[in-house]
Write a protein that binds this DNA or RNA. Structure first.
Lengths: 217, 217
DNA sequence: CGGTGTGAAGCCTTTCACAGCA
DNA sequence: TGCTGTGAAAGGCTTCACACCG
C-alpha cells in the first residue's frame, strides 16, 4: 500500500470534505459507498475520489465500494484527528467568540483550551470552557495548556507580533484570520483565511457574468 | 492588451491578495512597486506576479515597476469592485454577527443591507446598519434591498433550503459558511468556507511533521 | 456485472530564462 | 542597467479508459 508515499496537497485539502460526507451517510445507516456517490455528494469527479483514496491505500472492495466506518477511521488517522488537538484563540473580538462557539470543532477533535486578548477589560471573561487570559501571559499559559494549534483573530496590525510570540512559544500550526500576510520560519504551518478575499473572488465572477449576459436585470 | 481573454482561476484568487498588499504600500506613500517586492509581500514567485498582471494588460514600466495607484484601480475594476455590492447575511448566530461587524468588508465595497433569521426572538434586533428580518420575508426584502451577494451562516440542516430560496429570489453569488455541501443551478456562483476543514488540513501537516521528526516533545 | 485501482493523456499552473524596452 | 512581458519547459492535477477483481 502506498500510504508511505507523499499525499498530494490537493488530496489533503479534499480529505476533510470526504470525511464530512462520510459522517453524513453514516448517520443515514449506510454501510458502504461507491466512488460515484461519494464524488457526487462531495462535488468532485469519481475518478478523483478513487485516486485520492488510493493514496491512502486500497480500502475499497471491487464491485461493492468502500466500507463507510472503516474509511472514516482511516481518513481520521491520516489527518491526525485520532488524537485531540488543543487550540488557543488569540484575539477575542466578534470572530474569536464565534469560533469559540463553533459546533464543528469539538466533533472533529479540536478543543479550545485557551484564549487571549490585549484588552484588560476582556481578561477574565468566560469564552466557552475557558477564561480569557492577558496576552502578556501567552507563553506561560500555552505551555501549561500544551497548546498545539493557534487561531489568530486579532486586528491586522497585531498579527505578526502575535505570530512571532506563538512561534517562540513552540506552536507549530497557525490559522490566521487577520487580513494581512505574516511570515513564519520553516517547520511552522500557517493557513490564511481572508473573508474579504472570498467575496472579492465572487465579485469577479458576478462581474464577468454580467458583462457576458447583457440582458440581465 | 489581453484583458479580453479569460483570466485563469488561479490568477483571480490571487488578485485580492495583491490588492491587499498594494493598499498597504500605498499607505506607506510608495508610488511604484516591482514584481519582486510585490511577490515577496504576497508570498508568491515574482514571475507569477508578472504573468498574473499580464492577464489584465501591460500596466508596468520596464526598468521601473508598476504604478501603485494605477494598479489598485485596474485590479479593482477587473474584480468588479468599482461598484458597491449589496450583501445579505442569512443566519444571525455568532458567526453572522461577527461577519456583520467585520471591518474588511466596507472598505472593499461590500455593504451589509439585509439580515435574516428563522428565530422570531432575533427578528427586530439591530445588526450593524440593518435590522434582522424574518426568513419568511426573504424574497420581498431581497428585492427591495437589491441584494446581489448572500452570506449563509445558518446551521448545516437549513443551508440547502436557504440556498434554494436565495436562488429563486435571483441572488447569483453565494458564500456558504454552513458545514455542508449545497447544490446550485448553472449561472450561480458559490464558494464554500469550512472553518473545520482548515484546521483538519493543518492537523495533517502537524501529524506528518511529528512522524518525520521523532525527537519532538 | 459492478466498481475499484491505475497507467496514460490532457489540461492547468508555476517557474525559468531571456528578449526588449524605459 | 533594471525590470517587465512572455515563449518555452517543467511540474502537478484532473480526467479518461480499461484491466482486473469480488
Amino acid at each position: 500500500m502506498p500510504s508511505s508515499r507523499r499525499v498530494p496537497e490537493a488530496t489533503v485539502a479534499r480529505l476533510p470534505v470526504y470525511l464530512r460526507v462520510l459522517s453524513e451517510v453514516a448517520g443515514e445507516r449506510v454501510r458502504t459507498i461507491s466512488s460515484d456517490l461519494l464524488a457526487e455528494r462531495a462535488g468532485v469527479n469519481a475518478a478523483q475520489v478513487r485516486k485520492d483514496l488510493s493514496h491512502l491505500g486500497s480500502y475499497g472492495t471491487r464491485g461493492v465500494g468502500y466500507d463507510v466506518d472503516y474509511l472514516i477511521r482511516e481518513i481520521n488517522r491520516q489527518l491526525g484527528l485520532a488524537e485531540q488537538h488543543r487550540v488557543a484563540i488569540v484575539g477575542v473580538g466578534n470572530l474569536g467568540r464565534a469560533l469559540a462557539a463553533y459546533q464543528g470543532f469539538p466533533v472533529r477533535g479540536f478543543r479550545i483550551v485557551a484564549a487571549f486578548d490585549a484588552d484588560p477589560a476582556k481578561v477574565g471573561d468566560r469564552l466557552g470552557d475557558c477564561v480569557v487570559s492577558s496576552i502578556t501571559t501567552l507563553e506561560r499559559v500555552l505551555a501549561a495548556q500544551r497548546v498545539d494549534v493557534a487561531i489568530i483573530t486579532t486586528p491586522a496590525s497585531a498579527a505578526q507580533g502575535v505570530v512571532d510570540a506563538l512561534v517562540a512559544a513552540g506552536v507549530t500550526s497557525l490559522l490566521n484570520f487577520a487580513p494581512t500576510g505574516v511570515q513564519v520560519p520553516p517547520g511552522v504551518s500557517i493557513r490564511q483565511v481572508d473573508l474579504a478575499v472570498e467575496l472579492q473572488i465572487l465579485s469577479f465572477y458576478e462581474h464577468q457574468h454580467r458583462a457576458a449576459v447583457p440582458e440581465a436585470g
